[in-house]
Every structure is written in C-alpha cells, then in structure tokens.
C-alpha cells in the first residue's frame, strides 16, 4: 500500500479532493452537494494523506487540532442562527446579502455560513477519529 507512487501522488490528490469538497459545499444550495457531503470528501482526503504520509504530517498540515475545527464549526453554525434576532425575526430566519463584484453576482447568506459550519463539524469530528485510529500506540 505504502508505495512510492502513492506517497508522491497523495498530497496532490488530497489538495484536489479538498478543493473539490469546497466546491461541493458551496454549490450545495442549488445543485447536489452541501456541507455534509463536502465534509465527508474532505475527511477522505485527510485519511488518504494520513495513510500515505503518516498522521504527523496531516496534523502539521491542519495546524489546529481537528476537534478545534469541529468546535469552531459548531460555533459558526450557532452564530448564523442569531442575526435574524436583531431584525426581530424568529431565530434562524435566513438573511441574504446580494451584490455584484467584478460583474459577478454574489449572494452571501446565513444558511451558507450554517452549511460551512456543518462542513467544519463533519471534517473536524470524523478526521479526529480517523487520525487517532491511524496513530499507533508507538507514535
């Protein structure tokens, strides 16, 4: 399994999969995709990198502990519930901000941040499980 080819290709594959996962996450509102699926793709990416180059490399690449990633995701998701309260609407009523940047219509919304939160929770929680399982007692 741990061949030279695999080890050489894995970082590129991981990068591509991560990019793809973000793409899947962002298109989710209108096309098949979303935070949960995107998160799972990102987890697979980290799992591949972990198998190829070792858990330590993944931890270095992530900088933060995966659980902190999950926690910040949860925080982001909960935070995106609140803005509507300031407009005296029920909690979690979606807020949209649409504008045009360089002739490209861009729509920012609280559901999008909520979905990013879901993505981060899934990535963080499952990556931390996978990584600790990959770690041998000797590591």
């Amino acid at each position: 399994m741990n061949t030279v080819i695999f080890r050489t290709v894995a970082p590129f594959l991981t990068a591509l999969m991560l990019l793809f996962s973000v793409f899947v996450l962002l298109r989710g509102h209108n096309e098949p995709g979303g935070g949960f699926i995107g998160g799972l793709i990102a987890v697979s990416a980290f799992a591949i990198l972990g198998i190829a180059c070792g858990v330590a490399a993944v931890r270095r690449a992530l900088v933060m502990h995966p659980m902190s990633v999950a926690a910040s995701g949860l925080l982001l998701a909960v935070a995106s519930v609140l803005p509507s309260l300031f407009k005296s609407q029920a909690a979690m009523t979606s807020q949209w901000l649409e504008f045009t940047l360089f002739d490209t219509p861009i729509a920012l919304s609280t559901p999008m941040f909520f979905d990013i939160g879901v993505y981060l929770v899934v990535v963080g929680a499952i990556t931390s499980i996978a990584l600790s399982l990959e770690e041998r007692e000797s590591d």
Binding site: N30, G34, W96, S109, F114
Partner: peptide
Amino acid sequence: HGRNIVNVILVDFRG
C-alpha cells in the same frame, strides 16, 4: 433561495 431541496431542508427549513 435554493434549488436543491435536500440542502434547503437541511440548512434552512429544518436547520
């Protein structure tokens, strides 16, 4: 504002 009903249910209707 979303065409993907599954995702809209997940992040909005039943957030």
